[in-house]
Nucleic acid binder design. Structure first.
Lengths: 146, 146
DNA sequence: CAAGATAATATCGTGCACGATATAAATGAG
DNA sequence: CTCATTTATATCGTGCACGATATTATCTTG
C-alpha cells in the first residue's frame, strides 16, 4: 500500500462509517424496542435464540463477537425479564444453556414489524443492504482472522 | 415491501452485520491503540480534532452521532491524559471549545501506521472499503432523517 | 487414579453510551 | 429591560463492552 492510499481524514476511515452507523442504528432500534421493554443488544441476542433455542453462553458470544463477560449479565437481565432460563448443561457442568420461555418466544411475533420499519427507514433497497452485509462480514472476518 | 422480503434470520439483518463488525473493529483497533494509551472512541475523537482543531463539544458529538452526555466525560479523560484542553468559548459562555495540546498533535504522526495496518488486516481493496463506506453513510443518514 | 492443564462461566474495575434531569448562558417577546 | 424560552454542557443512573482475575468442571498426562 502506498502512502497516498492511507486515508487520514476521519470521513475516509472505514471505522468511522461503522462507528457512526452503529450509533444511528442503536438509536433507531431503541425507539421501536422501548415498547417491547428490550435494549438493542438484548434484542439481537433474542434473534439468535429464535433461530436456534438452547445455545450456550459461549456459542452466543462467539456469534456476536462478544466476550462472555459481557453476555453473562445481559442474559441474566433477560432472565430477570422472564424471557429466558439459564441452566447448567447436563453433559458439561461448566456450560450454561440459555432457553427461551413462553414470553421470550412470544416476542418473536413482533420482530418482523420492527425489521420492516427499520429497513424502510434506511431508504435503501434489499439488494444494497445485501451488498452492505456481505462487505461487513468480509471486513469482520478479515479482522478476526489476523 | 412484501412479507417474504423481511429477513428473520439474524444473519440477514443488516443491524447484525454492523453490530458484530463494530465489535471486531473495536478489538482490532484496541490492539494497536494500547501502545498509544488510547481507547478506540478516544482515538476517533482525536481524528476529528486533527482534521479541525478547536471544535465545540456539540460539533464533535453531532459528527460522531453521539450524545454530548457521552462526549463530555470522554473529552475530560483526554484532557486528563494531557492531549486536549477544554475552554469556555469567548463568544458563547455555554459552549466548550476543545483544543489539541502539543501531545495531542504529536499522536497524529502515529496514526497512518495504525490505519495502514487495519486496512491490511481487513484483506479488502480500497475500492471495496470505499463502497462499504458509502453504503454505511447512506444507511446512517437514512435512519437519522426518519 | 492423581496432578496439572485447559475450558466455561462469573466477578470486578474502567470506560462507553444513552435518556432524564439540572445548571447556566443566550435569545426573544412583550 | 424583564421574564420565559431555548441552547450548551454537565450530572446521574442503567446497561453494554472489555480485559484481568477467580471459580469450578473437564480433560490429559503420567
Amino acid at each position: 500500500m502506498n502512502a497516498h492510499d492511507i486515508p487520514t481524514r476521519a470521513e475516509d476511515l472505514f471505522c468511522f462509517g461503522v462507528y457512526t452507523a452503529s450509533h444511528a442504528i442503536n438509536r433507531a432500534y431503541s425507539g421501536h424496542l422501548k415498547r417491547l421493554g428490550l435494549t438493542y443488544p438484548q434484542y439481537i441476542t433474542l434473534t439468535l435464540l429464535w433461530e436456534r433455542d438452547g445455545q450456550k453462553i459461549n456459542e452466543l458470544a462467539q456469534c456476536l463477537r462478544m466476550e462472555t463477560s459481557t453476555l453473562t449479565p445481559l442474559v441474566k437481565r433477560l432472565e430477570a425479564l422472564g424471557h429466558v432460563t439459564r441452566n447448567r448443561s447436563d453433559k458439561d457442568g461448566r456450560a450454561v444453556v440459555v432457553n427461551l420461555t413462553k414470553s421470550g418466544r412470544a416476542l418473536r411475533d413482533r420482530a418482523p414489524a420492527v425489521t420492516a420499519c427499520m429497513i424502510q427507514q434506511t431508504g435503501m433497497t434489499p439488494a444494497e443492504l445485501q451488498t452492505l452485509q456481505e462487505l461487513l462480514f468480509r471486513l469482520r472476518d478479515g479482522l478476526q482472522a489476523s
